[in-house]
């Protein structure tokens, strides 16, 4: 849906954080909100249940300044990960330009990661988008828990199970500590803007 205003030369694009419930999508956005203070152009809005689970979505607007004569505005969203909020997830995903898939490194969430990735594929297909073509980045979150000797999936295994076919950039991360959050977002922005550049042929 990237909104390209030729006259004012403004590009507005939408990046959605997707993934299983409790995987750390909201925590990613909270960290970005703190770490990208300068780029933040509005408040972060979160609509949660009492238990801090995302009910509708989180929203954070960023302004990246000018690239090749164009002002770049980015809207970051998270979807609710809980299985039962399926139609809300579809709604938030509408018009997406790029996706960050936040996988949970906890061994107990192995199946949920795979189901959520499949759900993403289906919901993109409903919008006539392919998971193989959309700008997509994987994040293996909660790596900090390795130190606490909590059973984690190895990065190698996650890479094979989730990224075997996709072969997209992936990042180990700890959204709680902030490691890998910036790199994940930057890569996704890069892919998304390159993609838009090809589609809208704005540069030059």
């Amino acid at each position: 849906m990237a909104n390209f205003n030729l006259k004012d030369r403004v590009i507005e694009c939408k990046i959605v954080y997707y993934g299983p419930g409790r995987g750390g999508k909201t925590t990613n956005l909270q960290y970005i909100h703190k770490a990208f203070k300068k780029q933040t152009t509005g408040e972060m809005i979160s609509i949660n249940t009492k238990g801090d689970r995302t009910l509708f979505f989180d929203f954070l607007p960023l302004g990246l300044g000018k690239i090749k004569g164009c002002e770049i505005k980015v809207q970051l969203y998270t979807v609710p990960g809980q299985v039962r909020y399926s139609s809300t997830r579809k709604m938030v995903l509408k018009g997406v330009d790029g996706v960050v898939f936040v996988a949970d490194s906890l061994e107990v969430r192995r199946k949920e990661n795979m189901l959520s990735l499949k759900d993403l594929q289906q919901n993109l297909a409903e919008q006539k988008k392919s998971i193989f073509k959309i700008p997509l980045v994987l994040q293996y979150n909660k790596r900090d828990l390795a130190k606490e000797s909590i059973p984690l999936l190895s990065v190698k295994l996650m890479e094979r199970e989730l990224n075997g076919k996709l072969k997209v950039p992936s990042f180990p991360a700890s959204a709680l500590k902030g490691t890998g959050v910036r790199a994940t977002l930057q890569e996704c922005l890069k892919l998304t803007l390159q993609h838009l550049q090809r589609e809208l042929k704005w540069a030059g």
Partner: peptide, 12 residues
């Protein structure tokens, strides 16, 4: 027990 506690705090 440690695992159980962690999952609880994470809402799992």
């Amino acid at each position: 027990v440690k695992e159980a506690e962690l999952y609880r705090t994470q809402g799992l």
